[in-house]
C-alpha cells in the first residue's frame, strides 16, 4: 500500500470537512448576531409583537412616535 501517496487525499478530505463545518458554525453565529441586532433595533422603535404585548400588558407602539 502506497501510504505516502494517499496522504494528500486524507488531508484534503479532513480540510474540506473542517472548512464546511467551520462555515456552518460561522453562518449560524453570524446569523444569530444579525437577527438579534435587527430585533433590538425594531424594539427600540417601540414595536412589540401582539403576543409579547399581551404578556407584558403594554400597548402596541408606533414606529417613530
Amino acid at each position: 500500500m502506497e501510504a505516502a501517496s494517499h496522504t494528500g487525499f486524507i488531508v484534503a478530505a479532513y480540510a474540506t470537512a473542517g472548512a464546511v463545518i467551520g462555515g456552518l458554525i460561522a453562518w449560524v453565529m453570524l446569523d444569530y448576531r444579525a437577527q438579534r441586532r435587527r430585533l433590538g433595533d425594531l424594539e427600540k422603535l417601540g414595536l412589540k409583537r401582539r403576543s409579547a404585548t399581551a404578556q407584558s400588558g403594554e400597548t402596541i407602539g408606533r414606529a417613530g412616535t
Binding site: Y32, Q35, R36, R38, L39, L42, E43, R49
Partner: peptide, 8 residues
Amino acid sequence: LRRRVRTL
C-alpha cells in the same frame, strides 16, 4: 428570531 423581525 428572523420571523419575529419580519412580523415587526
